[in-house]
């Protein structure tokens, strides 16, 4: 049976300052890829479903 050890508090401030990069490149990569994929999916819907379904208005 495992329990939660309260996290976060065990990190020393000076250590964190050394370890953290000035630019969160991982977040840019991961979130950027997710949003890029989102745009691609949207464009696929736009060009391959919406436009072929014809004009309305």
């Amino acid at each position: 049976m495992d329990t939660i050890k309260e996290s976060g508090a065990n990190i020393e401030e000076p250590a964190s300052a050394l370890l953290i990069q000035p630019v969160p490149s991982g977040a840019f990569a991961l979130a950027g890829a997710a949003v890029a994929l989102l745009l691609v999916a949207w464009l696929v819907m736009y060009f391959f479903t919406f436009l072929p379904r014809g004009p309305v208005g």
């Binding site: 990190i11 250590a15 370890l19 953290i20 990069q21 991982g26 977040a27 991961l30």
Partner: peptide, 14 residues
């Protein structure tokens, strides 16, 4: 999405 991912990245790197 970005801010939280960056916050989690800090955790992962630490």
């Amino acid at each position: 999405v970005f801010t939280v991912t960056a916050s989690m990245e800090i955790g992962g790197r630490l």
